[in-house]
């Protein structure tokens, strides 16, 4: 029995009862609490193969990001997946949660990294979508659907990810606190920065690429815009929550947060729109609920992929409080 077949057998067919898939438990709370005490299963682990000439890596879902990075580093490449705890966080978990890391501005969102996905569906069958190719539009794009689905449509078993050349240089610079450095102006002035982060006092800029280009951007863009010191890497995000804000509204949102929660610390991803903040600050950030049509589409998709609701029962990719409240009312009715 192959590792995938073994995993499928663990999930079992319809009628085998509720089941949940466990990764590194680094984002375990996402999507709401489980209900009905589902059985726990774990996807297989291990890097199946890195093909630098194809710029792809095939890896089983429970492989940790650290192990993935080690495998691709040997071939001079990287994969654009990030997590706070790479030793624990798994590839499958990061994809299922769909939350990108602090380098999203330069490396793109998590969803763009997935080329092929193999998962076990609610019938206990192994299903595949996409292809181990950097370019492919054969069939509907279920890979995008799986990223961020929080294991409610199927449990990722094995994936093929896009690799990029490992850059010659990655550097992080931090502006002197309360200096003139304007994060938004820097975002516009820098060419393809890895990240521009701002906590209201300091700006962190991540630069990557060829050494000559990184040096040129430091000299030509950073230095004229304030006093900078080189740092190890990005800061750890502060606060327990993250909010998703349209890039055009980020500055106004930050102004509102500073005004209503002075002293509350936060970190904003400029050019991206992710805001890491406290629960108190999060309340200031507008978060309109998804429309009824979108909620209905979620219901129909779940109904078709998992009619019994046995995969990750109680969890939903729709995490907006109003939707969750409506769902729990519906469940209890």
């Amino acid at each position: 029995m192959t590792a995938l077949e073994d995993f499928a057998a663990q999930v079992g067919p319809v009628g085998a009862g509720p089941v949940t898939c466990v990764g590194g438990r680094t984002q375990w709370e996402l999507g709401g609490g489980l209900t009905g005490a589902p059985r726990e299963v774990m996807a297989p682990a291990g890097v199946v193969g890195h093909q630098p000439g194809e710029m792809i890596v095939r890896v089983r879902a429970a492989t940790t990001l650290a192990a993935l990075d080690e495998a691709t580093a040997a071939g001079g490449q990287i994969v654009a997946l990030e997590a706070d705890q790479p030793e624990r966080a798994t590839v499958g978990g990061v994809l299922a949660c769909g939350r990108s890391g602090l380098r999203r501005l330069g490396r793109g969102p998590v969803r763009d990294a997935l080329l092929e996905a193999t998962w076990v569906n609610a019938d206990g069958e192994v299903v595949r979508a996409g292809a181990p190719l950097v370019k492919n539009v054969t069939g509907f794009d279920l890979c995008r659907l799986m990223v961020g689905s929080i294991g409610t449509l199927g449990f990722l078993a094995e994936v093929v990810l896009r690799c990029h050349p490992r850059p010659e240089r990655e550097e992080w610079w931090r502006s002197e606190p309360d200096s003139d450095a304007d994060a938004f102006a820097l975002y516009r002035a820098l060419y393809r920065p890895l990240a521009v982060l701002w906590d209201g006092r300091s700006v962190w800029v991540g630069l990557t690429g060829y050494g000559a280009d990184v040096d040129a951007q430091v000299r030509g863009v950073l230095e004229p815009a304030g006093r900078w010191s080189q740092v190890e890497g990005p800061p750890s995000p502060v606060g327990e929550l993250r909010r998703s804000v349209p890039a055009a509204e980020l500055r106004a949102t930050l102004d509102a947060v500073s005004a209503s929660c002075p002293g509350s610390s936060w970190l904003a991803e400029i050019g991206v729109g992710v805001l890491h903040c406290s629960a108190e600050a999060a309340r200031v950030v507008p978060a309109p609920p998804p429309g009824a049509g979108v909620v209905e589409l979620h219901r129909r998709i779940k109904e078709r992929f998992d009619p019994e609701g046995r995969l990750n029962p109680g969890r939903s990719p729709l995490t907006h409080p109003q939707v969750m409240a409506a769902a729990s009312r519906g469940a209890s009715a």
């Binding site: 769909g98 990108s100 509907f140 993250r242 998703s244 890039a247 992710v274 429309g291 979108v294 907006h320």
Partner: peptide, 27 residues
């Protein structure tokens, strides 16, 4: 019915229906 899939914010709530719609060849 008219819906908006995805959003101008980086992590719209829910499934990536935007991603599923792109490439659906008008179906």
């Amino acid at each position: 019915q008219v819906v908006v899939l995805g959003g101008l914010d980086p992590e719209p709530d829910g499934l990536d229906l935007r991603g599923a719609f792109v490439g659906s060849e008008g179906t």
